[in-house]
Design a protein around this nucleic acid. Structure first.
Lengths: 149, 149
DNA sequence: ACCCGAAGTTCCGTAAGGGAACCCCAGTTG
DNA sequence: CAACTGGGGTTCCCTTACGGAACTTCGGGT
């Protein structure tokens, strides 16, 4: 299908898509985050083809998002989030939040998030790192930064 | 490529991917958010094939993320974010934040975000909707919700 | 010596992306 | 009035990536 690479664009969204934008990658990350860490378990949980799963895992490891660690004397491996990968989980939480809000329907959200700090069920709320007020689509202006093309 | 549909999974991340998970879709959303709203402009800006752009725009309109509005007496159209679509922009901001942090390198971020409320350059910071404290990968437990499979 | 289970690898058929050419429609120019 | 233009697609062919199932490899257990 000769997919175009996005990484060369002067855009952090495009570059991020080059790391986790391929089909299945966010779901693989979700599984690893949720504790499904082994090849066969991920494969069975997602119903992904083994071939594609191999490709995705290799790519995510190359990109430093996952690491492949042995868990046995035999050649058995688990995949774990690196710091770089754990940082991607907030993106998953925002996606989940959007799906809960716009797609869950009558049944309600399939997963709830309990926050350690307060012990309550909550969801992720994007706020300005500077003033702490909400930060949504209309709350920002986009300006060229130092790394602009 | 007969890609698997994710929408049937009891997972809001998977369902969200069914709406904006196809290649190019997040970048199209980014363009529309940034003010690039017309077919030819998006096509030229992204370098996407016209065929795929047509498919993606139709899908995003069907999903209620974009709306197609005439801007002339002639058959000319612009694509605009709906409320549902504007709500997806926070996902883009989180992706941009991650790319800025982990992929931008020496040059620094290509785009800066000025927050209207405080007038400062900031970035998006995910916080708990309940207590306002940071909400990252390790700060939550996942529990089955009412819509669980 | 045989079987097992985890983690891939290989192979084939199909569908999706890339790219370029083509089409339709409403002005607008000569 | 005919030809031209420019936006917004549509059609065609080619290549590549996905899906699915079968096969392989490597240790350990019985």
């Amino acid at each position: 299908m000769q997919r175009t690479r996005f990484g060369d664009m002067a855009c952090s969204i495009a570059r991020t898509l080059d790391v986790i934008g391929e089909p299945w990658s966010p779901l693989i990350l979700r599984d690893v985050w949720a504790g499904v860490r082994r090849f066969d378990h991920i494969q069975a949980d997602l119903g992904i083809s083994r071939k594609v799963l191999t490709e995705r895992l290799n790519h995510l490891v190359e990109q430093g998002v996952l690491e492949r660690l042995p868990y046995d004397a035999r050649p058995r491996y688990e995949y774990h989030l690196t710091a770089k990968g754990a940082d991607l989980v907030e993106m998953l939480m925002v996606m989940a939040r959007w799906g809960d809000r716009w797609l869950a329907g009558e049944a309600g959200p399939p997963v709830l998030y309990r926050h350690h700090a307060c012990g309550q069920i909550g969801h992720v709320d994007p706020r300005c790192s500077h003033c702490g007020e909400p930060m949504h689509a209309d709350d920002v202006d986009l300006l060229p930064g130092p790394g602009a093309a």
